[in-house]
Amino acid sequence: MSTDLPPPMTPPDCNLRGLPWMPLETGRLLDSDLFLLSTGDEFKAAVALWCKSWNQIPGGSLPSDERLLEALSGSRSWKKVRDMAMRGWVKCSDGRLYHPVIADLAVQAWDGRQVHMEGVDAKKSRQQRWREQLKELSARLRDVGVTPPANPTKAELEHLIALHVDGHVDAQPSTKASRSPSTRDATEMANKGEGQGERQGELIPPVPDGTAPPPGVSSHGASPGGGAGKRSSAEAARPDDVPEKVWQDYLALRKKHRAPLTDTALDGIAREAATARITLTRALEVCCEAGWRGFNAGWYAKRIGDDRGPSGGHGQPRSNAGRHSGFTHEHSDYYDQGVPDDGSIPA
């Protein structure tokens, strides 16, 4: 390479391969000396070299070898057309030929391509970060025995984290998650069995004093037949967490069946709702939708197509269902211990 020659007119890494077009300034071309002075063969060879230079590296350049130039031009009479076809081309210090107009267009195209590729790389980075966040959120759910839904959004996973991990019981339960063990945890959960502090992949914490509630004690902390646990036979009052519209719809349904809604009957529905891991409001909505005067966790499992039975779970919280009975959040973890074994519904 000679130091007396001008520097290359395009960057050495200028790569325009894959671009299906090359800009053509028609006004400038029609006013050029080449267009006015060249023959058809000369003009054809000149345009062919412009186009071939576009996919050379660096883009906008040509080799200085005469045999290569003849091949790139496609001309059958290269010696006759060479001088006019090579009009404007300059040899630079890297030993290659550059045309100032073509080189300028190549630099513009290369700058645009770099900006585009930077945007593509940034998009890939964002997508990778998003996938990693979804993976981390899903892992947190699996750690507490909740199987994430298929193809979840980040918002759905964050909602489930708030509900099942952070313990935000006011969050609306999701019907897409499951409390059943994930496929990869199935073998591990089967080996643990029951009576080992876990059930269906869900941890059962001890009560504050380290003991379980006595077997004969009901949800209210008194024996099932004791006077302390009895309620009035008058019509039940609407719990604060049940919307007025849902309450009135259910009362109308009970009236249609000639079955007044007593506190005892409502307590039974709340227990079954806790077994099904849904809120009392949702249980009453299902009764209205299905025309049931009462609610049973087994019926509900069959209605939603869950063959795991009442204890299979659907990722629903149990704490809301116990609010009617005046339980604290601490006691609600043992709420379903008062559910009859036969799954019957109190009157």
Results as ranks from 00 to 15, higher is better:
R271W: 09
L137I: 00
A347Y: 11
G322P: 05
E235K: 11
D249T: 11
G315F: 02
G298P: 05
L36N: 11
S325G: 10
R238K: 13
Q133W: 05
Q337R: 14
T279I: 13
A171K: 15
A236G: 06
A109I: 07
S93Y: 04
C287Y: 11
E188C: 04
H220K: 14
Q248W: 06
G309I: 06
D209Q: 14
R293G: 04
N151M: 09
A45F: 03
S53E: 04
N151L: 06
K123T: 12
A48I: 02
S218C: 06
A171D: 07
D4G: 12
G312M: 07
P346I: 03
D240N: 07
R129N: 14
R254I: 05
G88M: 01
T279A: 10
E188I: 07
E194T: 10
V207Y: 15
T153F: 03
Q248E: 13
G268N: 05
P310T: 07
C14E: 02
R140I: 00
G294F: 07
V165C: 01
S125C: 02
E70R: 09
G197D: 05
R76M: 08
A186W: 08
V217M: 14
L163C: 00
G315L: 01
D121R: 15
S38N: 00
G227R: 12
L19R: 10
R293D: 08
T281D: 06
G312V: 12
L141F: 04
P208E: 12
L16D: 13
P100C: 12
G298Y: 10
